[in-house]
């Protein structure tokens, strides 16, 4: 059963990712990314990481991607040309680099085939809200506080950049 679910989610995730980078329409790209995120959340569930699966859907799929969609709609962006419609050196280099990176990673991963064990039995406990909350507010208390500052900084920064009126230099 798990295997089938994995294959389902994995196929969805990869298909959505490919759809995202090959789509002409920015909105479609964003929606594909949402699909991808949700599939990955499904895989998190398979890995017994319940908390992260929920957070993934809520924060990523919900908040962040809505922000993306909002900005795309706000700017009313025109469609982009299809990725393969105009072949250029840029694509070739990108593709080439991608292939290199992929092959290296696959090689790295293939070389450990058979050495990795099944999901650790303790995982049932580890992935819960309690376990993560426990770790977050004991060992990782300092990083959590840092995250508070990080998010504050991000908000202040976003305000700073987007809030004030842009002066006369806009090209019309």
């Amino acid at each position: 059963m798990e295997t089938y679910l994995f294959i389902l989610f994995a196929t969805l995730a990869v298909a959505a990712a490919i759809g995202m980078i090959s789509s002409k329409d920015t909105v479609n790209s964003a929606l594909f990314l949402v699909l991808n995120l949700i599939s990955v959340a499904g895989i998190f569930l398979l890995l017994k990481a319940q908390f992260l699966a929920v957070v993934q859907v809520l924060v990523y799929g919900g908040a962040i991607m809505v922000l993306f969609l909002f900005v795309i709609m706000l700017l009313n962006l025109s469609d982009e040309e299809h990725m393969l419609s105009r072949f250029s050196v840029r694509y070739a280099v990108g593709f080439f680099l991608g292939v290199i990176v992929l092959s290296q990673l696959l090689y790295a991963i293939a070389s450990v085939t058979g050495t990795l064990p099944q999901i650790h039995p303790e995982m049932e406990q580890v992935g819960t809200v309690e376990a993560i909350g426990d770790a977050l507010f004991t060992v990782y208390l300092l990083p959590v506080l840092v995250t508070a500052i990080l998010l504050t900084a991000a908000v202040v920064g976003a305000l700073l950049l987007a809030q004030r009126n842009i002066s006369d230099k806009v090209n019309k």
Binding site: T3, A13, V40, A110, L116, Q118
Partner: peptide
């Protein structure tokens, strides 16, 4: 089911992301 399936999937997704950024 082996763990490297997950790693492989994430590597594939990562690579698609890289290609996307570059192109």
């Amino acid at each position: 089911m082996e763990m490297d399936w997950y790693l492989g999937l994430s590597a594939v997704l990562f690579t698609i992301g890289v290609i996307g950024v570059l192109t």
